[in-house]
């Protein structure tokens, strides 16, 4: 059970926070706002799953926010043009996959450092989108919000689909040879090559998958409001990477699980409402997020250090 230690600690921390909230601010647990809170995080969860795969292979992608924005606007425009959501979804996902594949080709094909590549694509995509749209909102036709269902039903659909993605990927990571290859490449790319795995192909695949998930998440996002915000994805990369790192996925690759990512994301998502309920100003959110990333990184570093001795 040693390998699950991090997830347990995390779950305990989350449990403690929830307990504290139950004691100090029971209003936090009212169903409607809680459901809204979780639904707002559903797209982030989908992206975080993809990010976890990328980090498991010892890479990183900080352009997810821009990919998400581009896909959101694209999906919004299609929906506004009267396309049914059933068609918008695959097109948005395909658009995301293309953007992800671009990162993947630059990283896996040319052997460039993923941090700089995705820094470049992050800005190029964001500014490209701004250039094309001039910050304009996309107004969505009726019947797009909440898939044309009631709000609570729409929220349920989103939550269930986000969890489906999570469970599906978690099972694939565990039970598909491809999933084990992700771990193998992140654990030791050279040994993976010797075992007949092609690390470059795996890397390209996880970047593409992350892009695809960004596209899906974008659709999950636009159905939550009557308008599409062109900057919907700004800051998403930070939240998602924080969730993954806090969730116990080692930044050095090869270690971690999607269950930890789920816990990490919920933990981070609880911060702003917790701050409000505990009468701490919400402006502290980003600082606390940063501090949590640093704590998680330090914890991993200290653990690695101990292991070496």
């Amino acid at each position: 059970m040693k390998r699950r230690g991090r997830e347990f600690v995390l779950a305990a921390v989350l449990g403690a926070i929830l307990l504290a909230m139950a004691g100090w601010a029971p209003a936090f647990f009212e169903p409607a706002p809680l459901r809204s809170l979780l639904t707002r995080e559903a797209p982030a969860l989908v992206v975080a799953c993809g990010m976890a795969l990328v980090i498991l292979t010892r890479q990183i992608d900080i352009s997810v926010g821009s990919q998400f924005s581009v896909c959101s606007v694209a999906a919004g425009l299609l929906a506004a043009a009267g396309w049914p959501l059933g068609l918008v979804l695959p097109v948005a996902a395909g658009c995301g996959a293309l953007l992800g594949a671009l990162n993947g080709i630059l990283v896996a094909g040319l052997g460039l450092p993923s941090i700089v590549v995705t820094l470049g694509t992050m800005v190029a995509l964001r500014q490209g989108l701004n250039l094309a749209r001039q910050g304009e909102f996309v107004n969505l036709p009726d019947g797009v919000q909440w898939f044309g269902l009631s709000q609570s039903a729409g929220q349920a659909v989103l939550l269930v689909s986000a969890l489906l993605v999570l469970v599906g990927l978690a099972l694939a990571l565990r039970y598909l040879a491809a999933g084990r290859q992700v771990y193998a490449v992140g654990s030791d790319a050279e040994a993976a090559r010797l075992a007949g795995i092609r690390p470059r192909v795996v890397t390209l695949a996880v970047f593409t998958l992350l892009g695809l998930l960004c596209g899906i998440a974008a659709v999950m996002n636009i159905v939550q409001s009557p308008q599409v915000q062109p900057l919907a994805g700004s800051g998403l990369e930070l939240k998602v990477i924080a969730a993954v790192v806090v969730g116990g996925v080692a930044i050095s690759g090869g270690r971690g699980s999607l269950w930890g990512v789920l816990t990490g994301l919920v933990l981070l998502a609880c911060i702003p409402p917790a701050l409000t309920h505990l009468h701490i100003e919400a402006y502290w959110e980003k600082a606390i997020q940063g501090a949590i990333i640093l704590l998680a990184a330090t914890a991993e570093g200290v653990r690695r250090r101990k292991e070496r001795h």
Binding site: A177, R180, Q181, G186, S187, D188, A191, G254
Partner: peptide, 22 residues
Amino acid sequence: ALFPDLTVAENLALRLEPAGAW
């Protein structure tokens, strides 16, 4: 030359099982 993060069974499987991702 083993994968430090994986289990014994998985390390053996990666050497012994046929390729094929799906």
